[in-house]
């Protein structure tokens, strides 16, 4: 089975990248073994307490909680990018595995396909 790594680099609501990547993860999980890596502002995708009620945008952050049901193995996060934003893994809606830069490099090399905007 192919191993796919989806990289999420964009914050939520400001563009459609986040939602499109999430849709791709849900689709990809049907036929491949998938993991997710949150880099840069992609970390904000899973920040707790999002409320998009006042925007013309769907609050899809909670959908990350369903990824386990879809067979997504692990959600990784760059520890450096997390710290740069003053955040900790406890601030995130889902369980994540923080990686240092060497860990991210290793992760990229472990996967057959890497997708994400």
């Amino acid at each position: 089975m192919k191993r796919i790594l989806f990289i999420q680099r964009h914050g939520p609501h400001g563009s459609l990248f986040g939602q499109e990547t999430l849709d791709a993860i849900l689709m990809g999980s049907a036929f491949a073994s998938c993991s997710v890596l949150l880099l840069e502002d992609g970390i904000y995708q899973v920040l707790k307490g999002q409320d998009a009620g006042q925007l013309e945008s769907r609050d899809y952050s909670v959908t990350y909680g369903a990824l386990r049901d879809y067979g997504v193995e692990t959600i990784y996060v760059s520890a450096r990018h997390l710290a740069a934003r003053g955040l900790a893994t406890e601030d995130l809606l889902v369980e994540t595995v923080p990686l240092d830069d060497a860990g991210v490099t290793g992760l990229l090399h472990e996967h057959d396909v890497i997708l994400g905007a």
């Binding site: 849900l26 899809y60 909670v62 959908t63 909680g65 369903a66 049901d69 879809y70």
Partner: peptide
């Protein structure tokens, strides 16, 4: 209601 997604 929980995950804002219809299950596959």
């Amino acid at each position: 209601a929980r995950y804002r997604i219809s299950p596959a």
